[in-house]
Design a protein around this nucleic acid. Structure first.
Lengths: 202, 202
DNA sequence: CTCCTTGTTATACACTTGTAAAATTAACCC
DNA sequence: GGGTTAATTTTACAAGTGTATAACAAGGAG
């Protein structure tokens, strides 16, 4: 009975490997198929190591949620930054990025659904969710405000736009046969234009 | 060791009791907490009975999905029917019903999320989902057409409206502190009005 | 080269999982 | 009443669950 050989890794490396394995497992097998052993096997690590880096499997899942939302936020931010200075172009870039990889990814959908399903039962997940969506809406409010939308309407518009994009993203990634990413972008942009109509930049 | 007393029930009664118990369990404990024993205890029945009426726990969950989507469809249909003959009122009734019980119910959210998370891995669930959403969009297309919207735009508008309503419903039931049901209705109605603008009934 | 720290594995444990098969008994027919 | 049927419960089982703990060994310090 020979023991498995192993290498000692940096703490951050191991933590990130476990987080990535958790996301991959949630994406591929759902929350039901994501166990301590499944995660650790995917990370190439024995099951016992999980508790050495996290308080438990629930804590690891919460941490994975935090990391995933951060990745999505960065993808959006990068798209906006690449769009240049024109406010409308920046807003459109933000929306369009939601329907392209890495955001519109079936793996991300599965991961996201797993998190949503924990919001009511897991207080830590609920807190992360509230924070994350507050951040998303805040960013959109800023973009809308830059487009000349009245300040009083920005909050409500950000909520509605978030909802529209979320709904399109959801159906697009759940069942890509109904409509395409391009159609989704076009619908969101049309909504945006009718919203900004009559609210010029000065 | 005395056996539990029991009464023989009609097959439909037992099936519906198990379906309702499944929905309740999904709502309260999530997919992870919904086991054969949890479902059957909730239905007041021993665990072995599940297999007597369903092919297994997965089949029962699929059946619960079918029943749940039917309930939501009926709630929408009832709201539309109660709205009278005016096309715009009917459309608004459809949308508003999405943000009120029994549609905007945290229990329903949990059930729905559990089903969505099975769409990619379970072919039966995927088929039910595709059918259901085709039906929802078809109904909306009819309502939009009655409002005088050009036929060519109806399909795209139905997709976008479904997405907006889904997104608002999702966030409203996930975290009711961000905005109210009335605000959600108002946002959807505003979108509708700007869409129908210039498309009178002639 | 040896010691020591600690990252890592292996094992054990009590519990839950879904399902199969047998044992029971309620309800209906005669 | 007795007999029959099948709905229901009970038990059993192999596999999987999360986690605690002990055993090990990798890699640096001296």
């Amino acid at each position: 009975m020979t023991r498995a050989v192993f290498t000692r890794e940096d703490a951050d490396t191991r933590r990130q490997a476990l987080i990535e394995a958790t996301a991959a497992s949630l994406a591929e097998a759902g929350i039901a198929g994501t166990s301590v052993r499944a995660i650790c096997m995917r990370a190439g690590v024995s099951a016992g190591l999980l508790r050495h880096y996290f308080d438990g499997v629930d804590a690891l899942i919460a941490e994975t949620y935090r990391a995933t939302t951060a990745t999505v936020g960065e993808a959006h931010a990068a798209a906006v930054a690449a769009a240049g200075a024109d406010p409308r172009a920046r807003l459109i870039a933000y929306v369009t990025a939601s329907f392209r990889p890495p955001v519109a990814d079936p793996a991300l959908l599965a991961t996201w659904l797993a998190f949503w399903s924990l919001v009511k039962t897991d207080a830590a997940i609920a807190a992360i969710h509230a924070d994350t969506y507050r951040g998303y809406r805040g960013e959109l409010e800023g973009l809308l405000s830059s487009c000349g939308l009245e300040q009083a309407q920005c909050r409500s518009a950000a909520i509605a736009l978030t909802a529209l994009v979320d709904g399109l993203w959801l159906e697009l990634t759940l069942d890509p046969t109904t409509f395409t990413a391009e159609q989704a972008s076009a619908m969101a942009v049309r909504w945006l234009d009718s919203l900004l109509e009559g609210n010029s930049l000065d």
